[in-house]
Design a protein around this nucleic acid. Structure first.
Ligand SMILES: [Zn+2]
Ligand SMILES: [Zn+2]
Ligand SMILES: [Zn+2]
Ligand SMILES: [Zn+2]
Lengths: 169, 169
DNA sequence: GTCGTTTGGTTATAAGATAACATCAGTGCG
DNA sequence: CGCACTGATGTTATCTTATAACCAAACGAC
């Protein structure tokens, strides 16, 4: 298959399977933790997974309004709080947006590669990066509690397109 | 001096010297680039340097209002845009705030250590971290244009204070 | 069923950022 | 000087993002 080993999902793929897998993993994680993945929270998670790009809170809100009325900002933010707390969603600080976690089964220090052209985001879980950051901080007497690592640039597809007549703007 | 080798400035120190050095460096950088560090821009930079913690745009705005009237959000954000464009200030995405650059003489990939207790921020310029991130991205075909690396935790002073009766809250 | 807790609805507002247009200050030139 | 041009700032309005506070419904334990 095209993207088996890559964290990028640019090429057309069976995205329904991505969403189904994410929701199944969420169901499992919540069952194991005794957390309640309600219909609303599950739907918000599903909307976040609708694309491999970060979703903004007010875009989710617009979707919900169309589906069920009685949706307001707190509706979305409370669901996001739950999903983040249980590791099902990551907040992307540099975009004020939210993306589904690739592997919510345990806590981790992730890094994100964000294409500034097509918006695709890839989640890495590079232990060496996380460890080097912790080591550098520790050398200065700093105790790390959370790493925010968001790398902007061009994804493979968009980088190939730059300067390429077949893709140039 | 107390903190000669540390990026942290928690202990009392001659902070006036920090500010003076930052402003002098800014003057130099702007003169060399032909950029106009106007009184307003210089004052905003000075306010950002008032502490070794990120400054929020609307706090800067409140200061300016008290000093000169006729200050509104665009006043601050335009000054910030200028300062960021010329590398004099960094935006801290995870805080929606701004901090003076330690070394504005040339572009760089910085990392920030942010104390979640006292708010102190330290800017690192660790080439190895930046290089490892670039390497990991490159291995996936991703071309990096900007790294956002913001590490939350406890600075040396606050970490020592945790559980220590002499500092406990 | 009843109680207590969690979840979600509702209204209002806080916090952060930008768009659009007017005005002013400096610069160069006839 | 008078004028035009440019960059910087003033001004008003609006947009985006996020939270506070309070209430009602749903759920789970007993
Ligand atoms: Zn997919
Ligand atoms: Zn792309
Ligand atoms: Zn200082
Ligand atoms: Zn601290």
């Amino acid at each position: 298959m095209a993207d088996a080993g890559s964290p990028f999902h640019e090429a057309p793929h069976d995205h329904h399977a991505c969403v189904a897998a994410a929701l199944a993993a969420a169901d499992l994680v919540c069952r194991q933790k005794g957390a309640r993945l309600t219909a609303l929270r599950r739907r918000v998670l599903e909307l976040i997974w609708s694309r491999h790009a970060p979703a903004r809170a007010y875009d989710i809100l617009e979707q919900l309004k169309g589906e069920r009325g009685g949706a307001a900002p707190p509706t979305v933010y409370r669901a996001l709080d739950f999903l983040i707390e249980h590791g099902l969603v990551h907040r992307i600080e540099s975009l004020n947006a939210f993306v589904g976690c690739n592997d919510p089964r345990y806590g981790h220090s992730a890094q994100f590669l964000i294409c500034r052209r097509c918006g695709t985001i890839a989640e890495l879980e590079d232990a060496e990066v996380a460890r080097l950051v912790r080591a550098r901080a520790a050398a200065l007497g700093f105790r790390v509690s959370h790493q925010t690592i968001e790398i902007a640039g061009l994804c493979p597809g968009c980088d190939a397109g730059s300067g390429d007549p077949t893709h140039a703007a």
